[in-house]
Design a protein around this nucleic acid. Structure first.
Lengths: 155, 155
DNA sequence: TTATATTGTTAAACTGCTTAACAATATTGG
DNA sequence: CCAATATTGTTAAGCAGTTTAACAATATAA
């Protein structure tokens, strides 16, 4: 059983973690193409890479932001030569999206980057037991659900 | 011992948690004063509340943002009547900061808000053993340290 | 006492989002 | 079949929150 002070420790630790993740995401990064890509840009590339030939509306839904925001983001990524807009012959109104070869390089670079981060984290953490794994998943769920409640209640 | 798929699960869960926290923080909230305060605003109030009579430069350091950003933020919070700038008699160049009574209400409202969130999370999580507590703290540390490494290496 | 450092403010620019207005294309209902 | 409606995407304007650069005022050091 855990003391109040220890619970406060968790709360403080959690806030520190959120802050540092925020900081980490605030500076752009090169994923192997020579471009410095902001977090939201590489995130968009990832979703396009994992959902080939997605259209603007679906991409907006997948990313949880407005179509307008996507449209602007795609214009930026297309200007950098990482993404291409195209039309299917059977449909004149949809704009579909795909990665260019350079976009694919960034996509793979980012996957690798994630893998490296994750490996390093595992090294620090040591081997995880099944009990620990299950506990961690429960923690994530608890955070998610609590956040959702508060989002609905007063957002 | 945990499988690769389970590790991927953790990674995905972590990203979902970060996304929802981000969403949660994107909409302003009333902490008992009638003002809708954005995340960065209440965060600034918290740091001033916990560091009475802090000056602009130190506040910038504590929050990890530029003095310019603080200056602008303080102007906004002062306009809302939550924070006050003042000068010490012995020093003409420093601007010190304190919460107004209304700022203090928001400060306490936010603390309470955090307490409620944390209680709800505990309810969902159930009673935590000491082993689980220690594991969680280790996870937070691993995340923090890994993030710091990447921040230093290529930021 | 002049040069330098520290402290804070302001202006301009940028990212990344939103809403609103719009244009083009598809679908539907009479 | 065609007019009304829905869907899809783009653009413009605006906001939050940051940065850098230029600046002014004050304090410290040489």
């Amino acid at each position: 059983m855990v003391t109040h002070a220890e619970l406060m420790n968790i709360s403080a630790g959690w806030i520190r973690v959120l802050n540092i993740m925020n900081e980490l995401e605030s500076s752009p990064r090169d994923f192997g193409t020579g471009d410095l890509l902001h977090c939201s840009e590489i995130h968009t590339l990832m979703v396009i890479g994992k959902n080939p030939d997605v259209n603007v509306t679906n991409l907006a839904t997948l990313l949880g932001i407005s179509k307008s925001a996507i449209s602007q983001m795609i214009t930026r990524l297309a200007r950098k030569g990482l993404v291409e807009r195209y039309k299917c012959p059977e449909n004149e109104k949809e704009t579909k999206l795909c990665l260019t070869p350079r976009g694919t390089i960034a996509f793979l670079g980012h996957e690798q980057h994630h893998a490296i981060i994750f490996t390093r984290m595992q090294e620090k953490l040591g081997i995880m037991t099944t009990e620990q794994y299950e506990f961690l998943i429960r923690v994530f769920h608890a955070i998610e659900e609590t956040a959702k409640e508060f989002k609905d209640s007063q957002g």
